[in-house]
Nucleic acid binder design. Structure first.
Lengths: 188, 188
DNA sequence: CTTGGTGATGTCAGTTGCTGTCATCACTCA
DNA sequence: TGAGTGATGACAGCAACTGACATCACCAAG
């Protein structure tokens, strides 16, 4: 490759998570991250638009998987069911690296600024899911509500999975949240 | 009062909304806001923790109203119903100043950075609602899901109200979103 | 009437996130 | 062998925010 160690991007992401966990997000300077990664501060900003985004590198992949799963779902499935099942592949992917997910979640939860970014990602996910639902014939309003409900179930399920035992099943936790929602809605 | 014009805080909030609408959020400097409001940049940061928060001054009141409404709801109401109805007073309050709400919503929607903050406020609202539900006896998981569902319905209903005609009814739009959710959940 | 306290503001210096611009250099390919 | 190319370094600069200290109208106790 070049005259520098390759993989600067990955190193930056890993180092950032380490430092955010060690000293806290606000106590960590972009210069600190760059230094430990062996690059310049300027290089950090060439790979990531800001200091937060370095923790959200996988969100694009997540969204692609969700949209693809919704698009490929059988045509006779109800919207809420489609969205719920669309999180299954994501659950499998995240399940493979639970350690990392737990550490990352702790860092994010510890800082409002990072929470904001995470919420924005979730909202973007919901919008994408709604679009995917509409493209398979779901009416606009129904698609929006179903997508929001699905993403909310994902969030709640994810939190439970992170807080639970190591052998926990993310997909099951998401399904449980959705079931709770169904019970709630019919119980009114 | 003092040797300065009183009401600096209110002036700053008003001027900020004006400037964000005129030039856009990023094109507006805190110095610009302070100058037009007749104070110093430092004074801005004495009243608001950051450049975004100046648009969210009422969120505390909103949360108090929501929590109070949930606490005062009849004991025999189902959780989802309680949350849904708890938004009624908020709907009336916002309904009185629809113009302001529309302008503000346009500014927020135009900038991801402001969207993030808005989403954080909504999440905080949901957490508060869940706590209020728990304090009236709703089981923890049910409270969380009901609160999230209610806030989501508020968000979707609010968007519809903003996008709709001037005579629109916010409370009705929120109720419609909740109904859609109920239909969705039972239809699966 | 004076004196001391208080609260809101001004002033100023400094850190940090982030951007634009240009130079550098290993690698590639014609 | 020489002209790109892509990733990086170096540097200057703006704007968001913070801490420390000074100022001054007002108020209350003496």
């Amino acid at each position: 490759m070049g005259r520098w160690e390759p993989g600067a991007r990955g190193r930056l992401a890993q180092v950032a998570l380490e430092l955010y966990a060690e000293r806290g997000y606000e106590q960590t300077t972009v210069g600190d991250i760059a230094e430990r990664a062996g690059v310049t501060e300027r290089t950090f900003f060439r790979h990531f638009p800001d200091k937060r985004e370095v923790l959200f590198d996988g969100s694009g992949t997540l969204q692609s998987m969700l949209v693809a799963a919704i698009a490929q779902a059988p045509a006779d499935r109800a919207p809420l069911e489609v969205v719920g099942e669309a999180f299954a592949p994501i659950g499998r992917l995240l399940g493979e690296t639970r350690d990392h997910a737990v550490r990352r979640a702790a860092v994010v939860a510890a800082n409002p600024s990072l929470m904001e970014r995470e919420l924005l990602k979730m909202a973007t996910l919901a919008t994408a899911a709604a679009t995917a639902l509409r493209e398979r014939g779901t009416p606009a309003v129904t698609a929006t509500v179903a997508a929001e409900a699905g993403v909310t179930a994902f969030r709640i399920g994810f939190e439970a999975w992170i807080a639970g035992p190591e052998e926990g099943d993310l997909a099951a936790d998401i399904a449980a949240a959705l079931d709770e929602l169904r019970a709630l809605a019919s119980g009114t």
